[in-house]
């Protein structure tokens, strides 16, 4: 773990981002774009799971939204790794960052289950409603912890 952090922090790309004037805020903005796309579409799918917009079948909403969610997650993770590389030890040791990563793992596992179940149902069942509630809490928590990193440490 320690050697991995050292390798990330001493990489050329980390050094470049650290010293850049415009690239760092650009990566920052890309991270926000990814988060907003992912969490935004997740909240809409959760709303459909809770019964908002019943005129469209759940599976149709899921099939339409999930590619946007996945794109958003990939963008956020890629930009997030670059932001992390600037000060890997600081972030790895930051309690809010650690909480964020723990919540993110749970949120992703829950999202995988929700995806599978919602793609094949016209209407949400009890399991999906519980999963949707967990999804709202977990992703809100991930987002809040992410924002809090800049204020703690």
């Amino acid at each position: 773990m320690e050697s991995l952090l050292v390798a990330i922090g001493s990489s050329d790309i980390a050094a470049f981002i650290r010293g850049s004037r415009w690239v760092y805020p650009l990566i920052n903005a890309t991270h926000i774009l990814g988060v907003s796309l992912a969490v935004g579409t997740i909240i809409v799918l959760d709303a459909r799971i809770f019964g908002i917009g019943r005129s469209v079948p759940l599976s149709t909403v899921a099939r339409f939204l999930i590619p946007f969610t996945v794109t958003g997650i990939l963008l956020a993770v890629a930009a997030g790794l670059l932001l992390f590389s600037v000060k890997p030890h600081d972030y790895a040791g930051n309690p809010v960052f650690q909480l964020k990563m723990a919540l993110l793992v749970l949120a992703l596992a829950n999202a995988t289950l929700l995806r599978r179940r919602s793609l094949h149902r016209a209407e949400a069942d009890r399991v999906l409603i519980i999963g949707g509630a967990a999804s709202l809490v977990l992703w809100t928590g991930v987002l809040f912890c992410g924002r809090l990193i800049a204020f703690v440490g």
Binding site: P95, V96, L99, V137, T140, G141, F144, C145, L148, A150, F151, V152, G153
Partner: peptide, 15 residues
């Protein structure tokens, strides 16, 4: 959850 997190983070707020 958000309020609890804010309270927990309050002690070390910085930057």
């Amino acid at each position: 959850a958000v309020v609890a997190l804010a309270a927990a983070g309050g002690a070390a707020l910085a930057h």
